[in-house]
Nucleic acid binder design. Structure first.
Lengths: 184, 184
DNA sequence: TTCGTCATGTAATGGGTTACATGATTAC
DNA sequence: GTAATCATGTAACCCATTACATGACGAA
């Protein structure tokens, strides 16, 4: 999850940890936020795995002074060739977990780097998942409506409307995708 | 979280684990689902803590046959006096975490058992949280709109609309609460 | 008799958060 | 010079999930 997001952002340009987190917030918006406590260890692991590497030879070295002192400044990471491969791989292997709430947003955020067929698969998977959830809530609501107090009821209905809204959104997106890439 | 939900459900009537999970789904709707892998250990802990207890003397003992065999059937739990206290306590101590996505739904689901002032506090806290999030997204969007690809942009905007919708919903709820319990 | 679903549980694992510690750099 | 924020990191913990194991019970 975090891994995919980091690879995706570094795919655009090298960044250091702190910056990465800002971009993460900006890219994922209201869907997800990560803390440094998960980001830095993750960067470490990804570096050990060889997917990212420290980016020297940066515009950072201007006066020569900072690098001369043993001080540790920003650590800028860039994607390695293996990292790019890994990213592509992660994007391609979109399975059932890709349409869960937390994952979907991250996948979607990198749709412009995703194969058109995979995009449609994810959008449809997500929609099916939501429709199934909606049916579950609806039928349970039909069975127990009278027994629920007004607050629980409001919660259910607001939830249902939210799901409906997202389904409609997804349907529009799917249609647009289809127009651009007609099914073979 | 799970704890609060379980206490809340058992507050209405004794239930066994399996049933509890169904009710959890029905009550929380699309907001949250729990697996048995977290439910059963949680029940165990709550029993050890003395908040819930096995409910014997149930309608279950009809023919006398099942209890005579050493077989272990359903384990029905009921709330103890301490459990009721704990529940009230949890409902009252509604702090900043109560307005986070995951917690809010659970709190809201038991609003009918919550003090009116606490209800308003939670609703307003949640609204403020969402408004703050919305401003964050908005300003970041204003700054970086041109640099974002169309997918990321759509994600942001859909997110923004969802937040807007929930804010409006909350505002209506708050107004209703206020009409019923005018501020002293 | 076998299939579905009811029912209870455990072990391993996952994927994060909070709180803390530290220090550099920038703006006032 | 001092406050804010930029910047990196660790340790302890939390709260759940997945996968697995087991078995009763009712309906076809």
């Amino acid at each position: 999850m975090l891994e995919l997001a980091v690879l995706g952002l570094l795919h655009e340009s090298p960044l250091h940890g702190y910056e990465l987190r800002q971009r993460l917030k900006a890219t994922l918006g209201s869907f997800r936020a990560f803390s440094y406590g998960s980001l830095y260890p993750s960067l470490r692991r990804m570096k050990d795995a060889g997917w990212i590497a420290e980016d020297e030879g940066d515009a950072e070295v201007v006066a020569g002074a900072p690098p001369l002192t043993g001080k540790r400044g920003k650590v800028v990471y860039k994607l390695t060739a293996e990292g790019k491969e890994r990213f592509t791989e992660l994007l391609a292997e979109a399975g059932p977990s890709s349409w869960e709430d937390e994952q979907f947003g991250v996948h979607f955020a990198f749709f412009s780097k995703t194969e058109p067929e995979v995009r449609v698969r994810i959008l449809e998977g997500r929609r099916a998942r939501l429709e199934q959830r909606r049916e579950g809530v609806r039928s349970s609501l039909a069975r127990t409506r009278e027994r629920l107090d007004s607050y629980t009821l409001q919660l259910q209905e607001h939830g249902l409307e939210s799901v409906d809204r997202e389904v409609r959104w997804l349907s529009e997106l799917i249609e647009t995708e289809r127009r651009n890439v007609p099914p073979r």
